[in-house]
Every structure is written in structure tokens, then in C-alpha cells.
């Protein structure tokens, strides 16, 4: 079982290596990946350097090129594939059929992983991508329960990767347009969800109000911690009831499922957060490295250490974590 950690900068790449990541995933600057943030992601030179550093430590570098190709933009996305291969990427994480086709034809020997943005949630879809583009791994969307993950793992020969920790998307990734509905920019087309340039804060009376492109996402009283207005985690009203209609501000944490995931032969656990700081990468990587080593020693005797949970909770949205859809009750 591989520990796959995020990096939005060269410093974060180093941090992930030092703290025990087996592989690191990054994105190129520009709109070709689903974490398009100012000051984030690597230039071509940095990507080469990242690959060199990863390889010198025996680790792998994955490059996410997982937004969808624009009608006049195929060359830009093709170039991102060419550059990644040239720079020494071990794996391309892809979602768009056109790009999967391009990579499979041009670079058949460079491993292709199906991005979570491709939204493959069942054996039929996995079969489609495996047969059409020979994907060597599928990253599962965060909408599946543990029994469903188990059924997929037992039903396919294609290795599977799951999200283990980090921000929780509650919608099937790649099939959510809530962000473009509100701002015009979505993960699929612009590599962004609830983009920061649309966020406004204002004090109204004693309350702090967060808005996304003018729409009130939440209103915080003085004793409440005000969180980033991710649009699916706001408080809205249904009839007379004002609550977190879609989801609370919380992060995914699957430490307690690690033995199950290990026993089912899950190929990799992925840490979310290319947009987070190197300090986040360091702490999360360290915890998960220890946990994976322990589960490998003896999955039956594995126990989550309270210090791990505490560290992860501190790094989570609203200091809360959840098993999300992996746990049937969440649904």
C-alpha cells in the first residue's frame, strides 16, 4: 500500500519525501489541473527538479492533468502531458477521454491513472477506462461506502486508490457544477471550486457574513469559528430550518478504516491538499506513514493512536473529521 501525498511547491515535495511519502502528486502551473490557485503548482523547471528529487530517494512523482480540455485548448493540455513525460513523471493522472487517448497513444509506457474527476464509481465505468485506455489505477470518488469499495476491490483487477484524508468533496467529483452555477468557474472547466476571488467577508451587526459572488454562504455569530465559504458547506434554509443543508465544514479522515483498506488490497491511500502548506504536508504525511507501517506489521492488531487523530483534527476544517461516505450512517 502506497502513501501518496500532495505538493503545491518544491518545498512541499521535499517535505513529503522527508516525512515518508511513497509518491508525491503535483500539478503544472496553468489551468490543466484541478487545483488552480495563485502561487501554487510547479513550473517546468520545478517539475524536472521535483522528479529528480523524488527519484533520488526512490519515490515516484505523479502529475495531475485532470481538468477537461477546452475546445480550442487541446494543444495546451497535450503540451502538459508532453512536458510531464519529458520532466520524468512516473504517472499521469488524467480525467478527459481525449487526453487519456492522447497519452495512451503517444506514451503507452507511461503509467496512466484515472483521476477522481472522471467519476468512475462502479465496475462498468472502471471497465470502460481500463479497456479503452489501459489505465493502471483508478482513483475512486469520495461517494462510496466501505462495503462498496470492498465490492469494487474484489470485482476488478485494476488497482484502486482511495482518498484517505483531507477536504471532503461530498458530490461525485467531476459531476458537480455548483461552483460554476455560482461563479462561472468549476473544477471541470477552470480547476477551481468556490474560487477565492469571489469570496467577500462583511460584518453585519455582530455577525460575520461570508459571501461567494454575492450569495450568502454563512453567517457566523461572535462565538463561532468562521470558515472558508466552500459553497456546499454553507448554512442555508429549507422551510423553517436553517442548517448545513448539504454538509458541515469537516474533513475526511479514514485512519480507522486503514486495516480494511489494506486487507482489500487498495493500492494507494491519497492525502488531499495540494493547496495546503508544507507544514500541513509534513504533519499529515508523518501520521499516515506511521499508521501504514503499523498496519503492514499486523493489520489485525492495528489501533488508531489518539495522537494521530489529534494531529489530523487540528489540520481539519472546523477541527472536525468524518468517515464521510465510507461510513454508511453518513449518507
Amino acid at each position: 500500500m502506497e502513501l501518496l501525498c500532495p505538493a503545491g511547491s518544491l518545498v512541499a515535495v521535499d517535505t513529503a519525501i522527508t516525512n515518508g511519502a511513497d509518491a508525491i502528486y503535483v500539478g503544472l502551473k496553468g489551468g490543466t489541473n484541478a487545483r488552480r490557485f495563485a502561487g501554487l503548482n510547479l513550473t517546468v523547471e520545478q517539475l524536472t527538479e521535483a522528479a529528480t528529487r523524488a527519484h533520488s530517494h526512490g519515490r515516484k512523482l505523479h502529475v495531475a492533468i485532470n481538468t477537461f480540455v477546452h475546445p480550442k485548448g487541446f494543444e495546451q493540455w497535450q503540451e502538459a502531458v508532453d512536458i510531464s513525460v519529458r520532466c520524468g513523471a512516473d504517472v499521469l493522472i488524467l480525467a478527459d477521454i481525449a487526453l487519456l487517448d492522447y497519452a495512451a497513444t503517444q506514451y503507452p509506457n507511461v503509467e496512466r491513472h484515472l483521476s477522481v474527476q472522471a467519476s468512475a464509481t462502479n465496475l462498468g465505468a472502471i471497465d470502460f477506462y481500463h479497456r479503452q485506455f489501459d489505465v493502471r489505477r483508478v482513483v475512486l470518488p469520495r461517494v462510496l461506502s466501505m462495503p462498496q469499495v470492498r465490492a469494487l476491490a474484489r470485482g476488478t483487477d485494476v488497482p484502486l486508490e482511495v482518498f484517505a484524508f483531507g477536504s471532503l468533496c461530498i458530490m461525485a467529483e467531476g459531476r458537480c457544477y455548483l461552483s460554476s452555477y455560482m461563479t462561472g468557474e468549476s473544477p471541470n472547466t477552470a480547476g477551481a471550486c468556490s474560487p477565492a476571488e469571489f469570496v467577500r467577508w462583511s460584518e453585519e451587526g455582530e455577525d460575520m457574513v461570508s459571501r461567494l459572488n454575492g450569495v450568502v454562504i454563512d453567517r457566523f455569530q461572535p462565538d463561532e469559528q468562521a470558515g472558508y465559504p466552500t459553497l456546499c458547506k454553507g448554512r442555508f434554509r429549507v422551510e423553517d430550518n436553517t442548517y448545513h443543508v448539504l454538509e458541515e465544514p469537516t474533513s475526511l479522515n479514514t485512519l480507522s478504516l486503514l486495516p480494511d483498506l489494506y486487507n482489500e488490497g487498495i493500492a494507494a491511500v491519497k492525502i488531499e491538499g495540494r493547496q495546503r502548506s508544507p507544514a500541513y504536508v509534513a504533519q499529515v504525511t508523518r501520521v499516515w506513514r506511521q499508521a501504514i507501517d503499523e498496519v503492514k506489521r499486523d493489520p489485525n492488531r492495528f489501533q488508531v493512536r489518539s495522537t494521530w487523530d489529534e494531529t489530523l483534527a487540528r489540520l481539519s476544517e472546523g477541527h472536525q473529521t468524518t468517515l464521510g461516505a465510507y461510513h454508511r450512517k453518513w449518507n
Binding site: P71, F74, D96, I97, A125, R131, T189
Partner: peptide, 26 residues
């Protein structure tokens, strides 16, 4: 795409609904 694969296997034709991610000519 599970439905696409199944219909294509028997040589049939299909309508792709708007939740199938097709954003470009290729």
C-alpha cells in the same frame, strides 16, 4: 460510461446524457 461500454459492446447506439463528461471535439 458504464452504460456507454455496455451498449457499445453489443454494437448499439446511444444518447449521451449531460452528466457524461464530454467537453471537446476529440
Amino acid at each position: 460510461l458504464a452504460a456507454v461500454q455496455r451498449v457499445a459492446e453489443r454494437g448499439g447506439s446511444f444518447v449521451a446524457g449531460n452528466a457524461v463528461n464530454c467537453y471537446n471535439a476529440s
